[in-house]
Write a protein that binds this DNA or RNA. Sequence first.
RNA 1: GGAGAGGUGGCCGAGCGGUCGAAGGCGCUCGCCUGCUAAGCGAGUAGGGGGUUGAAAACCUCCUCGAGGGUUCAAAUCCCUCCCUCUCCGCCA
Length: 417
Amino acid sequence: MIDISILRKNPGLLEAALARRGLDLDVGAMAETDAARRRVRAEAEGMRAEQRRLGRQISRLEGGSKQEAIARASEVASAYRDRLARADELDERFTEMWVRVPNLAHPSAAEGFSDEDSLEIRRWGEPAADGAAPKDHRELGAALGMIDIERAAKVSGARFAYLTGPAVIIELGLVRMVLDFLADKGFTPMVPPVLVREQALFGTGFFPDEDQQVYELAGDDLYLIGTSEVALAAYHAGEVLEEADLPIRYAGFSTCFRREAGAHGKDTAGIFRVHQFDKVEMFSFCRPERSWDEHEMLLSLEEEIVRRLEIPYRVVNVAAGDLGASAAKKYDIEAWIPSQQRYREITSCSNTTDFQSRRLRIRFRSEGGNRLVHTLNGTAAAVGRLLIALLENHQQEDGSFAVPEALRPYVGFDRVG
RNA sequence: GGAGAGGUGGCCGAGCGGUCGAAGGCGCUCGCCUGCUAAGCGAGUAGGGGGUUGAAAACCUCCUCGAGGGUUCAAAUCCCUCCCUCUCCGCCA
């Protein structure tokens, strides 16, 4: 949710912002409904004030004059109820529209509407030439006893995998390496709940826009998170934080669940796009003034992790029209995938400014009143995709996999195969 | 899963149909006192909408005592549903 004052003071600006995202929402209807709801609510409140005045008199009256006053108050009360119902109705109609308005894209977000419009910022490392790394992660994973997709299909269907043997040790080592690295930078490690209420998903902006991506439990009003961002953001919902405590940074490790509805036929090979994977996610609550610095910092941490794993990558600035509802700006890191001879997304880092904190009511105490914090999130390690990048980029001529130096102390071996 | 007790401001905690957005305490802010600090004394201190204003301040007003409904002229207070916490029993990694 964005600050409503832009609708009241500068609807043209809002229209332009929506156009930049390729959205065509009826700003005029929003402004009209907003004005109507305020007018009607003011009328209702006037009636309510009168009713309360009468109520206070009644408590001091006796006998006949009391009965008379009660009759009068009764009339006012009923008129108020009608007006209030009308105001609630208008509120609801307005909210339905307003909730669809995404965050305003930052001026520095790339122009365009799809992933092809992403703006490359920089590259690092030497991409393996075609043929130099002959096997894809699927072949390697099967040959080295690390990934079993066929049996996963038997048990759970398409887009699932068993990680087996050395892959498990590598996952745990990777997670531990990244948590150590982040703890050292002031992040508090967390293992959050993976089942959350609807409110957490609405608060983070996944609802109503991306509800088709989210698994819902049949018997309970709970949903499986697609990223620990949801549980980490909602952790401080409704709270007033101390300014001196900011920024508050968490490193959440959790399994993530995604329905991948509408992705049929896309990335069907291997574990690039699966329904379940484990991930370490960075999340930060900070003062609004520093969120753009914080964004750059989170990106730099992501890059450092990928560099330590010696994976060639590039950083892109995602196009405004390709952003999720909550993000004002987003950087993706894309790893070089030799078998595909192109860069593929392995991390993503967003500044959601006050979009989530407004919905979740997360504020901080500051001079002159409480203010909304800014929230940011960034992938530290998406295990499945990192495993792909690691296997393909560090495969050896003899078909084995060489563990990158930085990871060796955490896994206890230096090669597989 | 069964039984019981609770959810009140930044925190603790009283109130159990009207004068209550709410006693008291802690914390915080300002002032006084004091070699310094502590203590003491005095004052202030919930959040969120809307209106008014060029904007702010000031002012007016509504909402919020876990959430949502209901009864009533009037609800923190009575009724219903749900959520959460605690205790006991059961079950369990």
